[in-house]
C-alpha cells in the first residue's frame, strides 16, 4: 500500500465536494424537522433535483438554470408531501417513504434519454490571489460557487433559527403546534414554507451530484445520500453546526476510503465502502449521547396538526 499517493491537499478539497450534497439536504431537512414535520422523502427529492437539474442544464445550456430548476423540482416534490400530510393529514412516515419511491421511479423515467450525456459544469470561483496561496488556495479558495453557497446557508440557517423572530416562530411551531395556534400563529403556513425550503435544499443537493460531483446522470445516483442526510440531522441534535461537522465527516471518510482503495489497502472493499456510514453514525452518536438526555428533538416532531379546537 502506498499511502504517499494520497495527497492531503486533494483529499480535503475533494472532501468538501463530496460532502456538499449531503450538507445541503441535511440542512433543509433540519429546518423541516425544526418546524415539527418529519419528511422521510429526502432521497426522492434529491434524485428529482438531480434529474431535473441535469435535464435543464443540458437543454438550457447553463448549469445555473440547472440548479434553479433542481431547487424548484425539489420544492415541488416537497409541497406534494406537504399537501398530503398537512392538508389531507396523511401519515408522515408512510408519505415520506412513498415520496422517495415515487421520486426514484419518476426520475428514472424522465432521465431515460439523458444517460451518458455530459452537461456543462460549474467553473471554480476565481478569488484572485487567495486562490493562488499554497495549500489553502486549493483547499479553501478553489471551489465552485455551490460549495460556498452551502457554507453560507449553514451560517444563515443557524442565525435564522437563533436570532430572527421568524426562526423563533418556526421553532415554536415545532415545539407545540397547539400552543402556537392558541397564540394565533398559522401552523400550516409555517410548516408548508419549511417543507418547501427543505425540498429546495434537497433538490440543490441532488443537482450538485449530477452537475458537479459526478457529473453525469445515472439512475439511482443518489445511492442513499438522502438517508444519510436524515440520519445526520438526528445525530446532529438539530443543530446547524453539527450538521456541517457530520456532513464533512461523512464526505471525508468517503473520499479517504476511495483513496485507500486506489492505494491498494489490504482491507476488504466492502468494509471500506461501508466505512463512511459507520464512522459518521458512530461519531454523531457519541456527540449526541454526551450532550445528554437527547431531549433536543422538537417536541411535536411528526405529529399531525389540525386546527379543530
Amino acid at each position: 500500500m502506498d499511502l504517499g499517493a494520497i495527497s492531503p491537499t486533494l483529499l480535503i478539497a475533494s472532501l468538501m465536494v463530496a460532502a456538499t450534497p449531503i450538507l445541503l439536504a441535511a440542512l433543509g431537512e433540519m429546518m423541516v424537522e425544526k418546524a415539527g414535520v418529519l419528511n422521510l422523502g429526502v432521497e426522492g427529492m434529491m434524485i428529482m433535483g438531480a434529474v431535473a437539474g441535469f435535464i435543464a442544464a443540458v437543454e438550457g445550456g447553463s448549469p445555473w438554470l440547472g440548479f434553479f430548476t433542481a431547487a424548484m423540482a425539489g420544492a415541488g416534490m416537497a409541497l406534494l408531501f406537504g399537501f398530503l400530510t398537512q392538508v389531507l393529514l396523511s401519515n408522515q412516515v408512510a408519505t415520506g417513504l412513498a415520496l422517495t419511491l415515487f421520486g426514484l421511479g419518476l426520475s428514472a423515467l424522465l432521465g431515460q434519454g439523458y444517460v451518458g450525456i455530459k452537461a456543462e459544469s460549474l467553473g471554480r470561483v476565481d478569488l484572485g490571489w487567495l486562490s493562488d496561496l499554497p495549500f489553502f488556495g486549493r483547499v479553501v479558495f478553489g471551489h465552485d460557487p455551490i460549495v460556498y453557497l452551502s457554507l453560507v446557508l449553514v451560517a444563515a440557517v443557524w442565525a435564522f433559527l437563533r436570532f430572527s423572530r421568524a426562526g423563533l416562530i418556526l421553532r415554536a411551531v415545532g415545539e407545540s403546534h397547539d400552543a402556537a395556534h392558541a397564540l394565533g400563529y398559522n401552523v400550516l403556513r409555517v410548516r408548508m414554507m419549511a417543507i418547501a425550503f427543505g425540498g429546495a435544499c434537497a433538490g440543490l443537493g441532488g443537482a450538485y451530484l449530477s452537475l458537479v460531483r459526478v457529473p453525469q446522470w445515472t439512475e439511482g445516483m443518489t445511492a442513499g445520500a438522502g438517508w444519510i442526510a436524515l440520519a445526520i440531522v438526528v445525530f446532529a441534535s438539530w443543530r446547524a453546526g453539527r450538521v456541517l461537522i457530520g456532513a464533512y465527516l461523512f464526505g471525508g471518510i468517503t473520499v479517504l476510503q476511495l483513496n485507500l482503495q486506489t492505494a491498494g489497502a489490504r482491507i476488504p472493499v466492502e468494509l471500506l465502502s461501508a466505512a463512511p456510514y459507520l464512522v459518521t453514525i458512530l461519531v454523531l452518536v457519541l456527540i449526541s449521547s454526551r450532550a445528554g438526555r437527547g431531549g433536543d428533538a422538537p417536541a411535536d416532531l411528526g405529529k399531525p396538526f389540525h386546527a379543530s379546537a
Partner: peptide, 14 residues
C-alpha cells in the same frame, strides 16, 4: 400555552 424547549423570554416574545 407555553413552549417547553424555549426560554421564558422567548415564550413571552412569542
Amino acid at each position: 400555552s407555553l413552549f417547553e424547549a424555549l426560554s421564558v423570554a422567548e415564550n413571552v416574545g412569542l
